[in-house]
Design a protein around this nucleic acid. Sequence first.
DNA 1: ATTAGTCACGAAAACGTTTTCGTGTTAAAA
DNA 2: TTTTAACACGAAAACGTTTTCGTGACTAAT
Lengths: 349, 349
Amino acid sequence: MKRKITLKQIAKELDVSISTVSKALRNSPEISADTKQKVQAFAKLYNYRPNNIALSLKNRKTNTIGIIIPEIVHHFFSKVIRGVELVANKRGYNVIIGLSNESFSKEVINMEMLANGSIDGFILSISKETQQLQDYHHFNETMSQGMPIVMFDRVVSDIKCDKVIVNDFGGAKSAVEKLLSNGCKSVALITTKDYVSVGKLRTQGYMEALRDAGLELKSELILKLDDRLDYEVHLDALEQEIEQLFKTNKVIDGVFAVNELYALSAMKVARNLGYSVPDDVQVIGFTDGVLSKHATPSLTTVSQHAQIMGEKAANLLIDRLESDYGENDEDNYSTVVIETDLIERESTK
Amino acid sequence: MKRKITLKQIAKELDVSISTVSKALRNSPEISADTKQKVQAFAKLYNYRPNNIALSLKNRKTNTIGIIIPEIVHHFFSKVIRGVELVANKRGYNVIIGLSNESFSKEVINMEMLANGSIDGFILSISKETQQLQDYHHFNETMSQGMPIVMFDRVVSDIKCDKVIVNDFGGAKSAVEKLLSNGCKSVALITTKDYVSVGKLRTQGYMEALRDAGLELKSELILKLDDRLDYEVHLDALEQEIEQLFKTNKVIDGVFAVNELYALSAMKVARNLGYSVPDDVQVIGFTDGVLSKHATPSLTTVSQHAQIMGEKAANLLIDRLESDYGENDEDNYSTVVIETDLIERESTK
DNA sequence: ATTAGTCACGAAAACGTTTTCGTGTTAAAA
DNA sequence: TTTTAACACGAAAACGTTTTCGTGACTAAT
């Protein structure tokens, strides 16, 4: 019904200039106590609030940060968002989200849509398709226009920007070490094909753990899945692959899986084949998910501290936005590595 | 490094007026073909894009919608967001999120922050604390300033606005009917205290199903939990309450729970007490969650179609934003009821 | 009585657009 | 040749702020 009140309207009503109103509200010493009192009372009465858009235009600063993620219905990403929102709000910023849905073109479109003045900087995790295509022009263009980017989790090493990553390698390594020290002799790995950066790193962690223990790497114990297939939908396909792994390798007494779904499926298949978890087969997953906690038996996992990643990313971005040096400190980009924790539950001894 | 290029810079570079550049880019017939060609080529070369903030100010329209939810690390809410984002993007809008974290004051602050010009309208689900306090002044103030609100899931009937709700009553009722027709004689209810609107409605659905079946309502079979307690953290407390329920009512052969966590815990407790699910006890939950699908046995649930709710809410809001009638059709608010589906899995016969 | 200095306020520019209106030039019509 | 009309463009206002600078009216100092 009645629109928000503006400085101009207050000015007309009180028969002073717009400048006077503005100064009075900001408590400028230029304005007499009388006038201040009058203006402030009127403004309070009509619940005046400065228009954010006008401020953004004037200040060339929106106090809004954009976050682009591949998928929001995902425990990890939503926890990251929560972390971002938490510190963003605390530091006076809003958060605007864009979903790439794992698609390159949607990622590009979303970024272009936001880059035209809507936000001050990006926090993002790149889509699988972008990882495959290795087309990073949109990141470079954005940054060349002075808009900073912070990448998290799925990062690309070629791009110079702030990054927040999980210690995928170390987390995977210590998980496998745990299995070995728990007595496992044949630890299988369920992972993704190599173009997914995090899967690759976790695979390397697995390998190193075996090597350090003086064990031979057996390729038949490694199951590489194409995660372009949505296994949430084709759950049975996933389970068949894993069942095949178990059947052709009766020696398996430990499984390390690079995500929650793989780990859960491994447990399920193992039990269907008559193995007991954790007595016959021990399983560890890699995730921050909610499934692990409520599974039976509950799943031992490598925790990624998603919310802390979000918080860290937001702080990095805002620090850069508010640094005085401006754009000329392009070289001191930092890469923050978030250490993982092994959360021991019932799927290991 | 180099800032985004503006109309003014193009104008100066090409030695024409700002107006000419603007018109040329928008293909106005006022401008000669020569000039158009020249300007458009230059603009393309420098990758000109109009500044969104300036457009928002001029048009008094941000093409951004704000969404306020109690919690983002939650399957239901993130699916709603996905739905909102989907249609918002399709219709040329951005989405900006605010998290109330179930707190009244954070809800108010978030709304005030966004209401000052940042967005064109709200989509929201109110926090538990707001439901308790029943303080709705921020909704009324927002709407009185001409900013539309669409409420979803947790709505308040006193407020006149568009709403999207789940058929909580009907979903609960048909779930209980399913249990009864499956042979259950004593169906327990695990629900929340009454101030949570959706819990209340689901409880009523339970009651009506019993009454329709000519069964007596036994209050000792109803467990009302205070969900201000975060049972994700105090899982053992939750399980103890449920264990108590089973122990004092040996006759229970069916459980209807108003959310996923309660249902899962019920299954776990039942099995620990030596019951078999679904042979001795059948369980149905109410949710769109991911836990139900991957639990063992997997959980039969009432699906809420969260994403569709989000899509519907976004369409309602944008329709209103783009309706010509403007603000004077205040009475024709609609309430869309999303019907539920019963997804049968292993926890029922 | 003149000068200098406060005081309290207003005019105007700027942020980047779009759009209305006015205007000078040229070509066509009378 | 004069009038009319089309054409191609520019000036300026508007969206709502903040801030710099200028200025008129006093007061105090010389």
